[in-house]
Design a protein around this nucleic acid. Structure first.
Length: 188
DNA sequence: ATCTTCGGACCCTCAATTTT
DNA sequence: AAATTGAGGGTCCGAAGATG
């Protein structure tokens, strides 16, 4: 369910307290708004289909396969597959719709229907991590920058100096190349 | 300090319903 | 038929607990 507008692009990593990308300059993650500021709130973007690994961990996925999170945790491309979506039920009666006035406000109508159980999907165990994981961040939907180490900036967040550029490539054999690596700054 | 877990806020899709 | 509504089914933020 992509919002097809801006992207939060925060990397969606597992450790908000330790994840420098949460406040990196590259992050567009402005939401939630500050309580004291006027309510300007960007929509959170979502991928249409998270991969099964991200889904289990309730973590941000991305359209690329393998996704950044699976790359980070060194899942094989074969393990980074779209989750299966259930088919929406049909024939569900909904009752009369609420009328709205010109301003879009609801006109009260007591038509309470029984509320089904809307418990969220379970968040299963996160994938095994690996030691010394390199930092990974978005660049495009199908590629990413990597860097190590991160350089703390004097302001909020971290300076972002990609050392190389990886572009996952789907080979004609159906296999995923680990990616081409370009030195940062090189033209290609 | 870093990683893992997971509650629940947020988002999109699309069938049901209403309006034209 | 087109427009609108709103629930279903999904993603993923972020706080808290666990671990090294």
């Amino acid at each position: 369910m992509p919002s097809s507008d801006e992207k939060s692009a925060d990397g969606g990593d597992d450790s908000p307290t330790s994840d420098p990308f949460q406040s990196s300059p590259a992050s567009l993650h402005i939401y939630p708004s500050l309580p004291t500021s006027p309510t300007v709130r960007l929509k959170r973007s979502q991928v249409k289909n998270a991969c099964t690994n991200c889904q289990k961990a309730c973590k941000k996925c991305d359209p690329a396969r393998p996704c950044l999170r699976c790359v980070k945790y060194r899942f094989t491309p074969e393990e980074c597959v779209d989750s299966q979506r259930k088919e929406r039920k049909k024939g569900v009666k909904r009752g009369p719709y609420k009328k709205r006035d010109a301003k879009g406000n609801n006109i009260a109508q007591n038509d309470s229907l029984p509320q089904p159980d809307t418990s969220p999907p379970p968040c299963g165990p996160a994938p095994a991590t690996f030691a010394g994981s390199m930092a990974v961040e978005y660049a495009t939907e199908t590629s990413f920058y990597g860097q190590f180490p991160l350089l703390p900036s004097d302001k909020s967040g971290y300076l972002y100096h990609p050392q190389f550029y990886l572009a996952p490539v789907l080979l004609s054999t159906g296999q995923w190349d680990e990616g081409f690596m370009y030195p940062h700054g090189s033209s290609h």
